[in-house]
Simulated assay, not measured.
Amino acid sequence: MIADLDTLLTALYVELDDRIVPVRGFTRHGPGGRPEVTDAELTCIAVAQVLLRFDDERHWLRTASRLIGHLFPRLLRQSEYNARLRRLAPLMEAALRWLADATPATAELLRLMDATPVPCGQSAVTAKRSDLYGYAGYGYCPSHSRWYWGCKLLLVCTCDGTVTGFSLANPKLHGERDQARQTLERQPANRPAPGTAVVTDKGLSGQETEEYFAGPDLGLALIRPARKDEKQPRPFPNWLRQRVEAVIWTLKNQLGLERHGGRVPAGLWTRILQRLLALNACIWHNWMTGAPVKRSLIAYDHI
């Protein structure tokens, strides 16, 4: 199997149409004819948009017929595309989790956890008038030593970059410990299997947090670096910690996580799912094709 964009979109469409949509119950019922663009086709078109680095939907739909028209000859107008994409969020979430389960690396009892800012505005006026007010807030990014207005995305992933758990929170209302706890509590699909080692940073330090991870409900081993005020040494795999930083870099720089363009909560959530699905789809396809670097997107970012 060839590792290129056409092959990836074809394989993803077959997986969606034959397995994910019918098994997860996303088939359409009730009156009305078959839509001109099916949910499986629209999901593949959304993945192609991210991989080809089109952040603006109008620009993408003007160019899509030339780039992927040989695969998907029927396209939507911009307003319909945006509305359909928001309604497609549950399917995209189900698809990225399905592809994660189908990736061999998820069988390993090792996960990487980290949070990253998702800026949603730059001005004080935006913070007061935006429809994201209440969902987004002011938070501090220690990696860049700066404040931002937006949300915080928490990721749980494998060593090859497959995202197995995620959540979005207001950084002003929820700290990293609180967000991690709610991520694992509220949705069982985010929880790693008992006995899994979770590598994270100093943000999850504290005896209460470690006891929660090691408790009977989760049974996870928390691996983090020692704080400066801790006398007991903690062996920590810094090289492994850099893996999750590389995954975040891929999401931000290659898949445009910070250029999401979301202006309302549903739009923001959909655009984040769109990028996570694109990442998992590429890693899943790289495993199928035997690519040496599973997180590499080079084969899919051009026609």
Score class of each variant (00 low, 15 high):
residue 224 R to C: 05
residue 125 V to R: 15
residue 273 L to M: 12
residue 151 C to S: 07
residue 103 T to Q: 05
residue 197 A to P: 07
residue 86 R to C: 12
residue 152 K to C: 11
residue 147 W to V: 09
residue 73 P to Q: 02
residue 231 K to E: 11
residue 88 L to P: 07
residue 12 L to C: 07
residue 148 Y to V: 06
residue 257 L to Q: 00
residue 220 L to C: 07
residue 139 G to F: 00
residue 277 L to G: 09
residue 186 R to S: 00
residue 156 V to H: 11
residue 230 E to G: 06
residue 40 A to R: 04
residue 301 D to T: 12
residue 32 G to M: 08
residue 273 L to A: 08
residue 63 T to A: 14
residue 101 D to Y: 08
residue 212 Y to P: 03
residue 96 L to R: 13
residue 70 H to Y: 13
residue 182 Q to W: 15
residue 140 Y to E: 03
residue 303 I to E: 13
residue 52 L to C: 03
residue 245 E to W: 06
residue 52 L to V: 02
residue 157 C to D: 06
residue 5 L to V: 01
residue 73 P to W: 07
residue 80 E to G: 13
residue 239 W to I: 10
residue 135 Y to D: 08
residue 6 D to E: 14
residue 107 A to T: 13
residue 149 W to M: 05
residue 93 E to S: 12
residue 131 D to S: 13
residue 56 D to H: 13
residue 260 H to S: 07
residue 302 H to Q: 11
residue 71 L to A: 03
residue 278 A to R: 02
residue 48 A to H: 13
residue 72 F to A: 01
residue 198 V to P: 01
residue 267 G to W: 00
residue 155 L to W: 00
residue 184 L to E: 08
residue 254 Q to S: 07
residue 124 A to P: 09
residue 92 M to K: 07
residue 173 L to Y: 13
residue 259 R to G: 07
residue 170 N to C: 12
residue 255 L to Y: 00
residue 143 S to F: 12
residue 232 Q to S: 11
residue 207 Q to H: 15
residue 5 L to I: 03
residue 45 I to A: 06
residue 193 A to F: 09
residue 7 T to C: 14
residue 291 A to E: 11
residue 82 N to R: 13
residue 218 L to N: 03
residue 145 S to K: 15
residue 207 Q to N: 14
residue 66 R to D: 14
residue 38 T to M: 06
residue 215 G to W: 09
residue 180 A to C: 14
residue 248 I to H: 03
residue 48 A to M: 12
residue 53 R to K: 11
residue 72 F to Q: 03
residue 186 R to C: 00
residue 202 K to F: 08
